[in-house]
C-alpha cells in the first residue's frame, strides 16, 4: 500500500499550525524565527507533494526558490537581530514596543 496524498498534506498542515502557534506564543525573537522557518518548511512539503501528485516539476522548482529566499531572509533577519541587540541588550520582543499607545 502506498501513502495516500492526504497524509502528506495533513502532515504539512499540522506542521504549519504548530509553527503558527509558536510565532504567536513565544517571547524570544530567535525562537519566533525558528517557528517561521518551520512554517516555511511545511509549505515546502506540501509543494513537493503536489508536484508528485500532478506529475509536474513546478512544485519542486518552487521549493528550490523558496529555499533560496528563506536563506536570504534568515540572513537579513538575524543581522537585524544583532543590530537590535546591540542597542537594547535584549531580544525579548515585548521590550520592542515602540508602537504601543
Amino acid at each position: 500500500m502506498t501513502v495516500p496524498v492526504t497524509w502528506y498534506l495533513l502532515l504539512a498542515a499540522a506542521l504549519f499550525a504548530i509553527g503558527t502557534a509558536g510565532v504567536l506564543t513565544r517571547r524570544n525573537g530567535i525562537t519566533i524565527f525558528l517557528s517561521i522557518e518551520l512554517m516555511l518548511n511545511a509549505v515546502n512539503l506540501s509543494f513537493v507533494a503536489y508536484s508528485r501528485l500532478l506529475d509536474q516539476l513546478t512544485g519542486q522548482l518552487v521549493v528550490f526558490f523558496v529555499l533560496a529566499v528563506a536563506a536570504a531572509e534568515a540572513a537579513v533577519g538575524l543581522a537585524l537581530f544583532i543590530a537590535i541587540y546591540r542597542h537594547r541588550r535584549t531580544i525579548d520582543i515585548n521590550r520592542m514596543n515602540l508602537m504601543r499607545w
Binding site: P4, T6, L9, L10, A14, F16, A17, A21, L24, L53
Partner: peptide, 28 residues
C-alpha cells in the same frame, strides 16, 4: 493562539480531506 492553531489545522485538514480523499499517487 493554541486554540486557533488547532482549529486552523483542523480546517485545513477538512479541506484536504474533502478535496483529496481517495486520491492516490500515480507511479513515479
Amino acid at each position: 493562539a493554541i486554540l486557533g492553531a488547532v482549529t486552523f489545522a483542523l480546517l485545513l485538514g477538512l479541506g484536504v480531506w474533502n478535496g483529496y480523499r481517495g486520491t492516490d499517487f500515480a507511479p513515479m
